[in-house]
C-alpha cells in the first residue's frame, strides 16, 4: 500500500515537534477530516533556518509533513514556496490515490507558515 520511503518517513519522521519562539506558524487541515498539519519555521536572512511540524493524521500525512520539512529546510522563502505537492510525491515514491490530498496539505502548510511569517514582518 505505501512505498518504502513513506514507511521510512512515517516510522522515523524528521523535524517533529514545535519551535518556540517561531517566526511563522502555519496550520492547515481539519480534525473532522482526520488531517491537521502545523508547521513552525524560523527564518534567518530570508532562509528557512529551522523547521518543525506537528501532525494529526494518517501515516501518509505524517510522512508528507516529514518529507516536506526536510525538502524546504535551508531554502530561501521563494524556493520553499516552489516546492509542490508533486515534488513531495516524487520524493516519497508516490502515494495511493486516496492519499494524494495529504501531499497537498503539506504544500499548503509551508505556504501558510511563510505567509504567517511575512504578515508578522510587515507591520
Amino acid at each position: 500500500m505505501y512505498s518504502e520511503k513513506v514507511v521510512e518517513f512515517f516510522m522515523h519522521p524528521r523535524n517533529v515537534g514545535r519551535l518556540d519562539p517561531a517566526d511563522g506558524v502555519g496550520e492547515v487541515g481539519n480534525p473532522r477530516c482526520g488531517d491537521v498539519m502545523k508547521i513552525y519555521i524560523q527564518v534567518r536572512d530570508n532562509r528557512i533556518d529551522d523547521i518543525r511540524f506537528e501532525t494529526f493524521g494518517c501515516a501518509a500525512a505524517i510522512a508528507t509533513s516529514s518529507m516536506i520539512t526536510e525538502m524546504v529546510k535551508g531554502k530561501t522563502l521563494e524556493e520553499a514556496l516552489e516546492v509542490s505537492n508533486e515534488d513531495v510525491l516524487d520524493a516519497l515514491g508516490g502515494l495511493p490515490p486516496e492519499k494524494i490530498h495529504c501531499s497537498l496539505l503539506a504544500e499548503e502548510g509551508i505556504r501558510a507558515a511563510v505567509e504567517d511569517y511575512r504578515k508578522r514582518q510587515s507591520p
Binding site: 505505501y2 514507511v7 512515517f10 477530516c33 482526520g34 493524521g57 494518517c58 501515516a59 505524517i62
Partner: peptide, 23 residues
C-alpha cells in the same frame, strides 16, 4: 491521534489490529 497511523505502528511492532478511521 489517527487510527491508521496507530494501526501501522502496531503492525510494525508485529501486532495485527484494525480501525474504523476514514483513512
Amino acid at each position: 491521534i489517527e487510527g491508521e497511523a496507530l494501526l501501522l505502528r502496531l503492525d510494525a511492532a508485529g501486532i495485527g489490529a484494525s480501525s474504523g478511521s476514514a483513512c
